[in-house]
Amino acid sequence: MSYAMDMQNYTTQSETATSEPKIMARDVNVFYGPSQALKSIQLDIGANEVTSLIGPSGCGKSTFLRCLNRMNDVIENCTVEGRISLDGVDLYNSGLDPVLLRARVGMVFQKPNPFPKSIFDNIAYGPRLHGTVSNKDELDERVEKSLRRAGLWDEVKDRLDKPGTGLSGGQQQRLCIARAIAINPEVILMDEPCSALDPIATAKIEELIDELRERFTIVIVTHSMQQAARVSQKTAFFHLGELVEVGETDRLFTSPQDDRTQGYITGRFG
């Protein structure tokens, strides 16, 4: 009984903490040509929280993630309806520059994709492009800080001029995370950031995600339910373009409310 009460308090507290969501999605419909990929999605993403999006392939979770920094703009015949806002500002209908938006909402992809440049230049690229540093010292400092935050500094500090592509897979992925945080974004989107990595590299990224949460809001798409359980505070389950269930991660993995969620996370789907 006291457990149930604690849980209630816990929920209330965290709801208070996230009463002003960082990102709000309302009635979001996405179409690829005539086919509908997302159906009337309502989702709040709390600041300084990790929200994981799970669901079977083709359920729309990556599509939703890509709506959050307008990556879908570059896909021909993709239409996004409804309202998505970042700190209350509409992403699609307020004349917001998508390039500036992507500086605030960074992204890390499934396969590490460092630029074919030196490790230093990989990190320096964003700050230079956006002109957020005024001199070489500041740039050096920014590169070091980003690499430190990504837990990569000690491993690469003696070879900053070597190509980023020469690093191991896990290091490359942390390099991409360092590159994403170098421009001081507010939100980091991760699309299966560990699916190409071994368990040790995965653990390092997960540890990093937990640390980054203090400064950034993180949304992660993952096929590994254990990973969602390990790294996120909120989990959202998508199925056939619908958002079936969203809730505290610990609740969703112990007592999901919807049969479809239960079927999926327990491996019964059919």
Partner: peptide, 9 residues
């Protein structure tokens, strides 16, 4: 198996 949800319960 790392059971979850009703399996874990």
């Amino acid at each position: 198996r790392q059971p979850v949800a009703n399996d874990l319960r």
